[in-house]
Design a protein around this nucleic acid. Structure first.
Lengths: 193, 193
DNA sequence: AGTTAACAACTATCGTAAGTTTGTCAACTA
DNA sequence: TAGTTGACAAACTTACGATAGTTGTTAACT
């Protein structure tokens, strides 16, 4: 009877553990395979390269967080309450995250590209999902405005990830969600120029 | 007749030039003194250490930007227009900034601590000034709420500095200023728990 | 679908020597 | 007083060759 996890999941789990222990720049493919109880060559059947392994691990981790954030958001009907819950959940999940903490503290030069790097980076992914949540939850939020709102929300979440808020999370989450919703319902898109 | 600049100003100017050319980690105190046309020992009469020299250069540069941003903000009476102008001016000044561009591209591990490092970092400084601007310009903005708004504004400005917006600056500035002002006038501070 | 073995190319680490840079002296000059 | 040069130990960086480890690939095997 095989384990209940797929091989890829086991490898991604192992990558996460090794990265949290030794950092990303010191992570070796051999270490990851060993920790997963698989051979190096099996790993290369599933991942194109070391970089592929690392970025898919980071994206899966971001995806896991996003799933839980969405789960927290859909508990509420009121737009402000919903977005507020999403922000609070993000702050909760990110505080004390082993990989994230290590990267912020010791490998910012690795973290920054992963976060802000083009459309494949975490910022791009979170922005897309933020836009979805916003358009679902806030009545009347349309294209360009919900894009601006999603950009605002995703940048703030990344910012809190890199430097946690000084004020209590509840205050932060409440103000930000209020501002986003109020911005959406107020902003008379100016046909600027 | 001596130059019109003080010795400290000349040294800070020289530091900025050397940093833009060679980066901060490769910056030597000797190079800076040479470029300023002064001796290394004179430099040590004015700055306690290499770190002191660098962080005071960065803070002066941030201060210069802030000055121009405030000048742009005070041209408007309307709160939204005022904050919008401040954001636009920041985006304009930051685009193509020689030192900033170099740090984002090649020395993020040096830049991050300078930006987010405690109260003496750029984020802390910008937040204080944002709070001032907001309390001056937005009628009825009080303590905790204007703190939240200032935190939001300063984090977004830093975020745009590290990764410039994908949408047109006008759109970004308008939405953000609207959201901040709307958040301030809407948010019924909830006596949370 | 997984395994081990072997391989060239590349990258990292180590030790050590040589060279810079830092931060602090003291003595000197306009 | 505000600047200069020269000297100095401690710390840090660079260069370099030897060594070891890692990557990505291919091949034969269960």
């Amino acid at each position: 009877m095989t384990s209940e996890l797929t091989v890829e999941e086991r490898l991604l789990d192992a990558t996460l553990e090794v990265a949290a222990d030794h950092g990303i720049s010191r992570l070796s493919v051999g270490d990851v395979a060993k920790r997963a109880g698989l051979s190096r060559q099996t790993l290369y059947k599933h991942f194109a390269s070391r970089d592929d392994l690392v970025s898919r691990t980071v994206l899966r981790e971001a995806g896991r967080i996003v799933e839980q954030v969405i789960a927290a958001a859909v508990l509420h009907d009121d737009p402000v309450a919903s977005i507020e819950a999403a922000i609070l959940e993000t702050l909760r999940l990110v505080r004390g995250h082993p990989l994230l903490d290590r990267l912020v503290a010791t490998e910012p030069e690795v973290l920054l590209p992963l976060l802000i790097g083009g459309p494949w980076g975490v910022l791009g992914a979170i922005r897309d999902i933020s836009k979805q949540i916003i358009e679902e939850r806030v009545p009347g939020a349309t294209g360009p405005e919900s894009s601006s709102a999603a950009d605002l929300l995703s940048r703030m979440l990344i910012s809190y990830t890199v430097r946690s808020p000084d004020q209590p999370p509840e205050e932060v989450a409440h103000f930000l969600s209020t501002a986003i919703v109020a911005g959406l319902t107020t902003a008379p898109t100016p046909a600027h120029r």
